[in-house]
Design a binder for these strands. Sequence first.
DNA 1: TTATATCATCGTATATTTACGATAAACGAT
DNA 2: ATCGTTTATCGTAAATATACGATGATATAA
Lengths: 109, 109
Amino acid sequence: MTTAKTDAFELTVSRAAAFAKALAHPARIQILQVLARKKTCVCGEVVSELPLAQSTVSQHLKALKQAGLITGEIDGPAVCYCIDARAFNSIRKEFVSILDSITADVDCC
Amino acid sequence: MTTAKTDAFELTVSRAAAFAKALAHPARIQILQVLARKKTCVCGEVVSELPLAQSTVSQHLKALKQAGLITGEIDGPAVCYCIDARAFNSIRKEFVSILDSITADVDCC
DNA sequence: TTATATCATCGTATATTTACGATAAACGAT
DNA sequence: ATCGTTTATCGTAAATATACGATGATATAA
């Protein structure tokens, strides 16, 4: 009785909320920035770029992966993380279109 | 030792994360949609449009207000909520520009 | 003044989030 | 086989978030 009632809402709205939730922590946004900037698909370098412990960064990476925004493939002893460009852009587009629909209608007050 | 370390990140990143956090629940997105759609600044009608208890909706409204996305002014016994169009668009623009900067650089994998 | 309506807040319960250290698991190198 | 590196997971602790009913506060109406 305390879980988010995401079932009771429209699917597009729930998906947009899930996307927002994935970006709802500065560490995860910065991780995406790092992954986007580095041309090679660096993995653990992410940790050294963040002011957080390795285990904490790993948790954030897991959250981003579960949100479908990044992928991680094993590369020797390391793991190579990448933005899933296709999925990211798709979800992002849906999110932004919801934002647009909101701002477009604002004319009260 | 469990609070989000938002201080340790760039301000723009932290602000973007705060914006995302405000939208990280379907109820809050739907509230914004309702406020945007209704031309008059309806207040408690929001409650009747959502599948949640009045107190819960009130909490979500509070969260949106604290995020600076909506305003609420007393109108008789009722309270009139409105999207703060200026603030909303400003924060939204900053957020989207961060999204754009991420997607623009994606060419790994 | 006394209701009635509207909304916020309180109290409460539970789940989730955030963070860290410690440990386990997987791999390459010696 | 053993060691070092890298990453994930476990265990744990504390803060937040989510949800609801009950109660309080405020303003209009009677």
